[in-house]
Design a protein around this nucleic acid. Structure first.
Lengths: 157, 157
DNA sequence: AATCAATTCATACTTTAGTATGAATGGTTT
DNA sequence: AAACCATTCATACTAAAGTATGAATTGATT
C-alpha cells in the first residue's frame, strides 16, 4: 500500500475526524456519567471492542490485495499437418535407383506393370526387372509390401 | 497469505505514529484551552490505539487472500498424428461387408491372398471371392488400387 | 415359411506378377 | 582401356492374382 495515495490520505483524515468525534463523544459520555465511577472497566472494554473493529475495518479497507498467482497452463494444440518430407537417407540406404523409385511410386498409385510401362514409354519386361530389383533391395516379396514400406519410409507419397 | 508482509507492518506503524501525533495534538489543544486533563482519557486513547492495532493485526492474520488469477497460456505442441477417423459413410455407400473390409485391410498390409486366408482361417478361394466382390464394389481392378482408394476414403488405416 | 444378404468353399480358367537369366547400351569411375 | 552401374529389353518360367460360375450354410427379415 502506498500511503501517499490520495484515497488513503482521505481515509486517514476521515479516520482522524471520526476519532476526534469519538473522543468528544467519549468525553461527553464521561461528563454525563461522571458519577458512575465503577463503569470504567466497561467503558474500557467498549473502547477496546470499538477500536478493534475499527482496526479490522481499516486493515481490510487499506490493505493491498494479497496476490496469489494461479498459473493455469492452457494447452494449445498445434495441428502440424503431416507434410511429406522425402526421405533421401532411406533411398540411399537401400540403394534404390531413380527408375526403381519412379516405378514404386506408380505401383503405389495402383497401376499395373503394363500401365507403368505405357506411362514411362518402356517395355513390360523392363518394368518387371525394375520391380524385381526393387523388391530385392527392399527385401519384400510383393508390390503391396513395397508400397507399404515405401510409404512408411517416406520415399513415396 | 504471508502474515503481515513487511510493507503492511511498516504502514501500520506509520498509521500508529500518525494516530499518536493526532492524539498528542488533541491533547495539546485540550491543554491549550485549559480543559481539565484526566489521566483516564490518555488511558482510553492508549486502549484505543492498542486495540486498533490488534484489530489491524487480526484482520491481516485472518482475512482470506484475495486471489488474483493469472492465466499464463503455455503453448504445448501436441504432435497429434493424423488420427484415423473411420469413414462409416463411405463403407455403407459402397455397400462393403465386414469381411470384405477385413480382407482389404490385410491386403493393404501387404499380405498375399494365401496369407490372408491363413490369417482368417479361411480357404484361398474365399479370399479371392471377397477380393473380387470388393474390387467390383469399389470399381477397381487391382488390389493396389483398392488399397489406394481405401486409404483415401479412410475405410482402412 | 420364404426370402435375402453375408459368408463360405470349390473348380476351372485367364491375366498379371514376379523370378531367372542373358544381353545390349551409355555414362562414370578407376 | 577396363570395370562398374544404371538402364533397357528379351525369353521362359513359376507363382500369385483375379474372374466366372455354382453351391451350401447361416442369421435376419418379410
Amino acid at each position: 500500500m502506498t500511503l501517499g495515495n490520495l484515497n488513503n490520505y482521505k481515509e486517514t483524515l476521515i479516520y482522524g475526524v471520526v476519532l476526534a468525534v469519538l473522543l468528544v463523544l467519549l468525553r461527553w459520555l464521561e461528563l454525563r456519567f461522571l458519577i458512575i465511577t465503577h463503569a470504567f472497566e466497561i467503558y474500557a472494554a467498549a473502547i477496546a471492542v470499538l477500536f478493534t473493529g475499527l482496526g479490522i475495518w481499516l486493515a481490510l479497507k487499506l490493505s493491498k490485495p494479497k496476490i496469489q498467482t494461479q498459473i493455469i497452463e492452457k494447452v494449445i494444440e498445434v495441428p502440424q499437418q503431416p507434410q511429406f518430407v522425402f526421405n533421401k537417407q532411406a533411398v540411399s540406404k537401400f540403394g534404390l535407383s531413380c527408375r526403381e523409385l519412379e516405378v514404386l511410386q506408380l505401383m503405389s498409385e495402383g497401376l499395373s506393370n503394363q500401365e507403368i510401362a505405357d506411362h514411362l514409354f518402356l517395355s513390360l519386361p523392363t518394368i518387371k526387372t525394375h520391380g524385381s530389383r526393387l523388391f530385392e533391395k527392399l527385401e519384400v516379396r510383393r508390390r503391396t509390401q513395397a508400397v507399404e514400406l515405401g510409404k512408411k519410409l517416406a520415399i513415396i507419397r
